[in-house]
Every structure is written in C-alpha cells, then in structure tokens.
Design a protein around this nucleic acid. Structure first.
Length: 432
RNA sequence: GUGGGUGUAGCUCAGUUGGUAGAGCACUUGGUUGUGGCCCAAGUGGCCGUGGGUUCAAGUCCCAUCACUCACCCCA
C-alpha cells in the first residue's frame, strides 16, 4: 500500500475544528490590527530563498526541496513565507500604493529535516509582516498581538523571549568581540561550534552542548555592543512592551537561523512540546527588501508554528467528533424513499442531518444514531407511514413525539432549530 | 546527516526456552431490554512492516531495508 511521504501528515476530520479555531481567531485578530491577507505561491525560484535566507544557513544548505523543472529552472518549495511576501511587495510595487503594507498569510512550508515531535517536513505557518514602519512601536505591537492571540487561544505556558541582533553598523564589531572571547576555549567547543566560531559566531551562543555553554558563559553581550541607534530602538521596544502590559524575558542568547534579521528578534517558547520549544518566532529585517532589489524599506514580521500551536491545544482540548442534529432512521423500502427526500430537504436547510442508507434493523439504526451522537432521531417505519405519521425522539431527554407527515420538514426543522438556538455552543460547532 | 526506542487484527496490546497466531475495544448478526446505551451468544477481520539468511521448523534468532517515534542538529 502506498503511504504518505515521511515527515508529511494527514490532518483528519477530528482535528479540523482546532485548526479552524486557531485560523479564525488569528485572522480575526490580525484583521483588527490592520493586517490583510495575502496569498502567495508555494514554489519560488531557488534564488529568492538563497538570497534572502542566506547562503550559509542550514535551511538553504541542506533542507530545501529544490529541483529543476522541465525547462531547467531551479525551483524550491518554500521553506518559509517572508521571502515570498517581500518579493510580492517589490514585484507589485506595493510601496507605491502605500509604503506601509501589513499583511498575513497562512499555508504550508517545506523543509527536509528529520521529523520529530512538533517538527514536520510539510508544516504550516501563519505569517504576519509589516513593511514600511521603522518605529520600534511596531515591534512592540506585533509582539503584543502575538501575546493576545495565545491568550485568546488559552495557551498559557508560553514566554516571550526578546533580543536585539544589532544592525550592519554594530554587528561586525560584536562578532569580532565574540570571536575573541571564545578563542581562549576553542578546544572545549563542539565540532560544530569550532566551525561556527569564525563563520557565524552568533550561532555559538545558542548551542546546547554543555561545554559550549560554559565557553560562552562570560561572553560579551550583543546588547552591550549595540550602536546608539540600535540601543535606542531596543529600549523603546521594551518600554512599549511594559506599556502594553506584555511580559517578556530579555534573552541574550536568542539568535535567528535566517540571515536577514536585524535588531529586534523574538521567540515565544513553551516547554510542552519536548525539544521543539518555539511556537512562534520573528523579528525585524530592515535590509531584506533592499537586498531583494526593492527600495530601502524597514520591515518586521513573525511566523507562528501552526502545527505546534494545534498540538499544544490538543493536549488540553482533546478532539471532539462533530455530531449531527438529526439522525433519520427509516425501516422498509417505502419509508426509506420518503425519509430520504425529507432528510435531503432538511440538509438543504442547514440542519445537520445524517441518514443510514443501508437498510439496517431498528436496533442497528439506533446504535448508529447513538454513536454519531445525534440529538434527535426521526423514526420512519412503513407502519407509521401508513398512518401518515413519524416519530421524533429526543435522545437527550429520552422523550418522543409523533408528528403528522403533513409539513414534516417544517415541523422537524422548527423543533431541531428551536433546541439548537438554546445551545449556542452546539450550533456553532455543527452548522456549516 | 547522527544516535536511542518501536513495528503482531481498524484501535490498545499479549505471544512463554524457535513448532505456521491471541485478548480487550470496535464492527456485523442474533438474543434480552418499552426503539439506542447494560448484559449474553455467535461471526467478520492478521503474507506477525518488507526482503534476505540460519533451521526439519521463525512473530520468536541474525543481517539489511523501510516506516513510526524520541533526542542531537535546526527551527516555527
């Protein structure tokens, strides 16, 4: 039998309500903050990612799904969304329409990593990006928005970590200082860090190997090496977060895996997903648009790990099977014909209706109705039909009534709707 | 890419020192029940992940491979 690709997964019907809840909550909130949806393709020219994410990063070096198409163009399944959104911003000259563009997008990303808890090769992200705003207030607002979202979703065990990566003015100086600091203990560094020390010294900071942690323990902090402009920016971010009542931790070790980040970076971390602690992450990338050939444009954005968020929520809210409002149980050929047309009519009216078409016994039908969790069961037998009546049973109160066939669809619809109106939760979950 | 754990019915799992498979749940049917839930009975359903090897004989031992899973790594 053909199985799905490693690291890919099916999202089954039982899980969908949680996904929809996350998606709806997020989009409603983002819209309220002035973000608009943008939909971008899942494939781009490889060059876009190589240039934006950075040639030396793990993502570009060994995790992308890249292949030549039939004409030989190198294409890549997107490993992240920001590059595409920036590309669209430039390509459609959105800055001419309005230099400030706030957009969000939802969709699958692809990275060929070894699958693990909370880590898939096709995973979903919700991204939000704000172009054209240099103010640190925007940084704070975006982090605030993220905190509000998690709060709305009742995801609690999450803390916001923030840091500043500086800018092209101050970062080189810091890298040199860090390189000097670790020079003394080079021999104690892990093999990876020995390489990183010179190639990408910042990466040594978040290595988890104990000896490496020791080596960087007394390392100079990037925050102490910020230029005046970056320091002011960061100070305003933290002050604004205080103003907005967002709690956070300054995490000097927080480094991003994508080269385009500058200044503010942040990550929302949880302990409930094993080693995959990041639920959302992002930061400022003031140089990206220019690097991709657009006008010099400040920007900031983040990505939420949709799958991870859903998994955290599943831990507290186990998946629920959605129940129909009404189950139609027909006994006998004549009854089935009549009941079939009624159930179709009820479905067309938006009543959650389920009917067994297979000709089971009454016991079998009732069992099925019970398993589906239907609130009402309409029983139509040939005998009742002869008397121009059907039985409507309320499974919850265990009461039932006999209804005349005349105008039966209206009667049943009214009855079921009436009940549903008393139970808003039920209606919301079941109506489509 | 590296390491650990796992792979037997739809699901959760048993399977003893190697002798060609079991339970519970689910499903189907029947009985009982005031037309479902409880109970009783019967039944359907497994190339024991795949391919090799050892053996008279392999779910059971060996090798390989694939998949799942956790961790490293990386990141959301």
């Amino acid at each position: 039998m053909i199985q799905l690709i490693r690291g890919f997964k099916d999202i089954l019907p039982e899980e969908i309500p949680v996904w929809q809840q996350v998606e709806q909550t997020a989009t409603a909130l983002f819209e309220a903050f002035g973000f608009r949806e943008i939909r971008i393709p899942v494939m781009e020219r490889t060059e876009l990612f190589a240039r934006s994410i950075g040639e030396g990063t793990d993502i570009v070096e060994k995790e992308m799904y890249t292949f030549p198409d039939r004409k030989g163009d190198l294409l890549t399944l997107r490993p992240e969304a920001t590059a595409s959104v920036a590309r669209a911003y430039i390509q459609h000259k959105r800055y001419a329409v309005d230099p400030v563009q706030k957009v969000y997008t939802i969709g699958p990303m692809f990275r060929r990593e070894r699958p693990q808890k909370g880590r898939y090769r096709q995973f979903y992200q919700i991204n939000a990006e704000a172009f054209g705003v240099a103010s640190p207030l925007m940084d704070a607002q975006i982090i605030h928005m993220l905190a509000v979202l998690l709060d709305r979703l009742r995801v609690t065990a999450v803390t916001a970590h923030i840091n500043s990566l500086g800018c092209p003015v101050c970062r080189p100086g810091y890298k040199a200082a860090l390189c000097d600091h670790t020079a003394a203990g080079v021999d104690n560094l892990c093999a990876d860090c020995k390489r990183r020390r010179t190639q990408n010294p910042l990466r040594v900071l978040d290595c988890k190997v104990p000896t490496c942690r020791e080596a960087v323990a007394g390392a100079p902090s990037l925050l102490d090496h910020l230029c005046d402009a970056c320091r002011d920016h960061f100070t305003t971010v933290t002050e604004s977060l205080d103003l907005l009542g967002v709690s956070y931790e300054i995490d000097k070790q927080l480094v991003r895996g994508l080269d385009y980040y500058t200044r503010t970076t942040f990550e929302l971390q949880t302990r409930s997903l094993g080693a995959q602690s990041a639920v959302a992450g992002g930061g400022r990338y003031d140089g990206l648009v220019a690097a991709l050939g657009g006008p010099d444009t400040p920007a900031i954005g983040f990505a939420i790990g949709f799958d991870r968020l859903v998994e955290i929520m599943m831990q507290t809210q186990p998946p629920v099977r959605q129940a129909p409002d009404l189950f139609v149980a027909a006994l006998g050929d004549e009854s089935r014909k009549a009941a079939f047309s009624w159930s179709s009519a009820l479905g067309a009216r938006g009543i959650g209706t389920e009917m067994d078409l297979s000709g089971k016994s009454l016991k079998g039908l009732m069992k099925r109705a019970d398993r589906l969790g239907a609130r009402y069961v309409m029983i139509v037998g040939d005998a009742e039909l002869a008397q121009q009546a059907v039985v409507l049973r309320d499974m919850e109160t265990k009461t039932q009534q006999t209804l005349p066939i005349e105008g039966i669809v209206d009667r049943v619809a009214k009855q079921v709707r009436g009940k549903a109106a008393d139970e808003p939760g039920r209606t919301a979950a079941e109506s489509n």
